[in-house]
Design a protein around this nucleic acid. Structure first.
Lengths: 229, 229
DNA sequence: TCAAAAGTGTTCTAGATACACCCATGT
DNA sequence: ACATGGGTGTATCTAGAACACTTTTGA
């Protein structure tokens, strides 16, 4: 804190913007909305909102996210505060960006229409307003980094998932093919997945066993430090 | 952004606080100041200040840091935005925390007195105001993480440093002893240090060769991804 | 000559990578 | 019967960990 009194300092609008990632089985996607008001009305944008009087930024981000997706209890994390003086042409607004991971299937079509929202593959993000492109890029870097040693990839999948699904997810995140033998070996060696006695039969004749993430086993491991990939 | 107009939303004071790390050859330390104004006057605190009308948070943090240390061009990075509603009892203030690494020798005694500032070993941080303790803890986690794959440890040392000095630094950061043979092997295998034909003779009879970090060599390596430790 | 820190090499182990075939099933 | 994707094991290589003695030199 500096020596000047609180009163003489300038107050600033504080917003949150959410980079919402989803995975459709093949591609990693981000949820964008068509901005409904000026400035930049009609342009693609991240979902955002202002931090209110009686909430912190985490709460504001959760509120904004619930508004758009109808979902609660989403995995979410603060990414970075974007504070450039002219980032918003309409006035001095800083934005605290959050990144969120959701299971794309949980997201209702209805809300998609209500908000003119759309999922875009990361390779096909349209031009975005303000500094939102930077936000997406930063979120993507954090996702890669995080997913290597935290069990957050599962947030992007249904509760029950198959190893091939999980592998596709990692391949999408890292944009690189992985060897399925080595992948299975590595993931299963962590012993944080429980195999179910049930197969997913949509995508192959043979069917692939479902697994679920076991957070209790993970927590026990956690002490040391885990590498997921 | 949300549908409500900009005007109806609440503006908030935005501060920056700096966690300043230094290394004295043995211990990792943080620079704290005795707060000179209310609330909490006289308590230990991080160095901070408000974000002004015509600067972004990075600039504000650099300004604050220069005020306290007289130093420019310091390694600095945004850490996290702390936004809890009641974090500052005097009003709604959010704080964007920065962490900075300085060479402790560059820091003048004079300024230390001017600001009633003092270096504290991380194991002996006194009670701090507001949420500053959380800030320090978070900064420390980031330092450990960062230093593993970015060449920032050097920021804490003089330009010329010896391998034993560098090793002590890593030992202080990770709070664990390291094997000097393995350490030297690993660090030198990166080939980003240049050995000088000159020895540091203070701390031993034999003397230890000085090295300097070669950022050009590092940049070439950088493409791939490096692990420092 | 001895105390104190610097410097240096080898072996072992574990994890990462590369790689190819059989299995189950629906059509 | 065959096409499709699922599942599995082994050999090799590389990086990290463990470990002890010699060198230099000022006092």
């Amino acid at each position: 804190m500096d020596l000047s009194s609180y009163k003489s300092n300038q107050k600033i609008l504080v917003a949150v913007d959410c980079i919402i990632f989803g995975f459709d089985g093949t591609q990693l996607k981000a949820l964008l909305i068509k901005r409904g008001f000026e400035p930049e009305k009609g342009k693609w944008s991240l979902m955002g909102g202002f931090v209110g009087k009686n909430e912190n930024a985490d709460e504001a981000a959760a509120r904004v996210l619930a508004q758009l997706t109808g979902l609660d209890n989403i995995y979410m994390e603060q990414l970075y505060a974007f504070t450039d003086v002219d980032r918003d042409p309409a006035g001095r607004v800083i934005s605290i960006a959050y990144f969120a991971l959701i299971n794309i299937e949980d997201y209702s079509e209805q809300l998609q229409h209500d908000h003119e929202a759309k999922w875009f593959p990361l390779s096909k993000i349209p031009p975005l307003i303000f500094d939102h492109k930077k936000m997406v890029a930063k979120a993507r870097r954090l996702l890669r980094q995080k997913v290597a040693d935290h069990p957050i990839g599962f947030e992007l999948l249904p509760e029950k998932f198959t190893l091939p699904q999980l592998q596709s997810l990692y391949e999408a995140i890292y944009e690189t093919p992985l060897d399925k033998r080595n992948f299975a070996k590595k993931i299963l060696s962590l012993k944080v997945l429980n195999k179910l006695n049930e197969k997913e039969k949509e995508s192959s004749r043979k069917g692939a066993f479902y697994y679920v993430f076991d957070s209790v086993k993970y927590d026990k491991l956690q002490q040391n430090g885990v590498r997921f990939i």
